[in-house]
């Protein structure tokens, strides 16, 4: 058996057995369902940042594109879960194509600024068209709409399994990308884009594909988040939701398949703990960002890969 397959399917098996053996209390079961969907979002982010080396500061735009595409179609057009998911995937893919095409006209720091700017405007648009989106207040998706193949997705146990399936799909897809020749080219672009260009690869097109894949996974995660937890609000489009995936990836390991999950678990519980103590819990995010950039640039799995396990994808 290959070591990398054992590691990743082992991790998925642990997540499955934690539920089967009833280890979770109700509270942690809910938390982990959220973490799994958010980690899928982190995987989407990592495809662009970790593998292609493009730092986006505006991924909340893609997350909320999926979130609102599915949420609004259920709320206004009475779509069922399956239809709304298909719509969300198509919309996110198209949307990331447009945004990627525009943002990739810039390089380096301009790319980071432009993505941040686009996502801020996405947030402002959601507030501006409050008649449709109900702005800050948001939309609550009724329990009756959250049924898929006659399974009630608002039931905590079914919700956990659904979240685990979404996460597993994204993880396997990410693993496949990391091992494929396509992924190798992305890594080559990250390491030295001039050299990749010299070797004859269409760097711009590969970057655009990376943005589309990354944006679509993020949008899918957003759509699932809205459906599983029944709430679609403007706060998911705001700056913190662009910073969180960056933070998960940095903590867990830049350019590692399991990194986003590790980072998301850590940050979720850290913020959960801090928000019990103070209203100003976002200060934790600030401090963690500084600590990670100053002392742990590779993140946990990245450091392990660097020191001991060269084979971690």
């Amino acid at each position: 058996m290959r070591k990398d397959l054992i590691l990743h399917f082992g991790a998925l098996a642990i997540l499955l057995f934690l539920e089967l053996l009833g280890v979770f209390s109700d509270y942690h079961q809910g938390n982990f369902a959220r973490i799994l969907v958010l980690a899928a979002y982190g995987i989407g982010y990592n495809v662009l940042f970790g593998y292609t080396g493009l730092l986006s500061l505006g991924h909340a735009l893609f997350f909320s594109a999926g979130l609102y595409a599915s949420g609004l179609s259920i709320y206004h057009l009475d779509y069922n879960v399956g239809q709304s998911l298909i719509l969300a995937i198509c919309f996110s893919a198209f949307f990331s194509l447009v945004i990627g095409y525009l943002a990739l006209r810039t390089v380096g720091v301009s790319f980071m600024i432009v993505t941040l700017m686009f996502s801020q405007v996405g947030y402002l648009c959601i507030l501006y068209f409050g008649g449709i989106t109900r702005g800050d207040e948001g939309i609550v998706i009724q329990q009756s709409s959250r049924v898929f193949l006659s399974l009630d997705l608002s039931d905590p146990t079914i919700r956990y399994y659904a979240a685990l399936i979404i996460f597993s799909l994204c993880l396997i897809f990410n693993l496949w990308i990391a091992k494929s020749s396509f992924g190798r080219v992305l890594i080559a672009i990250r390491e030295n884009s001039d050299r990749a260009l010299m070797l004859g690869y269409n760097v711009h097109l590969y970057k655009l594909f990376a943005v589309i894949i990354s944006g679509t996974i993020s949008g899918l995660a957003g759509a699932c988040y809205g459906i599983l937890f029944g709430y679609v609000g403007a706060s998911f489009a705001a700056v913190p939701y662009s910073i969180f995936p960056l933070l998960w990836v940095l903590i867990g390991g830049v350019g590692t398949v399991l990194g986003p999950l590790v980072g998301a678990i850590f940050m979720f519980y850290l913020i959960d703990y801090a928000s019990d103590i103070t209203d100003a819990y976002m200060i934790i995010v600030g401090i963690t960002l500084l600590v990670v950039t100053l002392y742990a640039r590779r993140g946990l799995l990245g450091e392990l890969r660097y020191r001991y396990f060269k084979w971690i994808p």
Binding site: L55, L57, G108, V109, M112, I243, L246, L250, T278, D279, A280, Y281, M282, I283, V285, G286, I287, T288, L289, L290, V292, T293, L294, R297
Partner: peptide, 29 residues
């Protein structure tokens, strides 16, 4: 902070996001 990052563009941008949240939340406190 920034001096120790040797003003690497990517690391600096991430670090200044950190500074953003620290100043903002300290103001809230």
């Amino acid at each position: 902070i920034l001096k120790h990052l040797k003003y690497d563009p990517e690391a600096t941008i991430i670090a200044t996001i950190g500074i953003l949240y620290i100043i903002q939340q300290a103001a809230l406190m």
